Simulated scan of single mutants.
Amino acid sequence: MLTQARWTHVALPSSDMDASIDFYTTMTPLVVVATRGDELGRIVWLSNAGQWQEPFVLVLAEFTSERGHRQPIMAPFAHIGIELPDRADVDEIAGRARAAGCLHWEPQDLPDPVGYICAVTDPDGNVIEFSHNQRVYQTVRELWGPPVSAAR
């Protein structure tokens, strides 16, 4: 039961839903968890498989009247971040993106807290950052999670 406000999703327009679904389900760890459609268009929700306790959803919306027409993308620095468990995972994603022609930032080490990153662009030009050792979840868990000794 919801007892307080909660951060749940980010929504982006899609000019080609099938291309967007293919991109996000092959280039990222996201899977389709819900789809909806009517005469106005299609909506797809993507999230990490099995992430039921604290789910976060990427909502893609393809409006029938805008199909085939790119909408404005997020500003140049704006991006969606995905943290990966190993440095080699960043290189692997970069290699696949390079082959697909959608690599936006080559893999690089950046000062703390950024870590080792690369970025790719989705079919509409939005930037998806892949990082290793950025420690976003770890930082939040250290702030509000149980003490390490209690978690074991």
Rank of each mutant, 00 (worst) to 15 (best):
L46H: 08
L46T: 07
S47R: 13
S47I: 00
S47K: 11
A49Q: 14
G50S: 06
G50R: 08
G50F: 08
Q51T: 07
W52A: 14
W52N: 11
W52C: 00
E54D: 13
P55K: 10
P55F: 10
F56Y: 12
V57L: 14
V57M: 06
L58F: 09
L58K: 03
L58W: 08
L58Q: 04
L60I: 04
L60E: 01
A61E: 14
E62A: 01
E62P: 06
E62H: 04
E62G: 01
F63I: 11
F63M: 15
T64Y: 03
T64Q: 14
T64P: 05
S65H: 14
E66F: 13
G68E: 00
G68R: 02
H69L: 12
H69W: 05
H69P: 00
R70A: 15
R70L: 13
R70S: 13
Q71G: 11
Q71T: 12
P72I: 06
I73Y: 09
I73Q: 11
M74N: 11
A75K: 13
A75D: 15
A75H: 13
P76E: 03
P76Q: 09
P76W: 01
F77T: 14
F77P: 14
F77Y: 12
H79D: 10
G81E: 10
G81V: 02
G81R: 01
G81N: 04
I82N: 00
E83C: 01
E83P: 02
P85S: 12
P85E: 08
D86R: 15
D86C: 09
R87D: 02
R87I: 09
A88N: 11
A88R: 14
A88C: 10
D89A: 14
V90Y: 04
V90T: 03
V90H: 03
D91C: 06
E92I: 05
E92K: 10
I93Y: 09
A94Y: 03
A94R: 05
A94C: 04
G95I: 05
R96C: 08
R96T: 11
A97E: 02
A97L: 12
R98M: 14
R98E: 15
A99H: 09
A99R: 14
A99N: 13
A100H: 12
A100M: 06
G101S: 11
C102Q: 09
C102W: 02
L103R: 06
L103K: 05
L103N: 01
L103A: 03
L103V: 06
L103Y: 02
H104Y: 14
H104P: 00
W105G: 00
W105M: 13
E106P: 04
P107G: 08
P113N: 07
P113F: 01
P113W: 04
P113R: 07
P113Q: 04
G115D: 01
Y116P: 02
Y116L: 06
I117N: 02
I117F: 00
I117R: 00
C118M: 05
C118Q: 04
C118R: 02
A119V: 00
A119C: 09
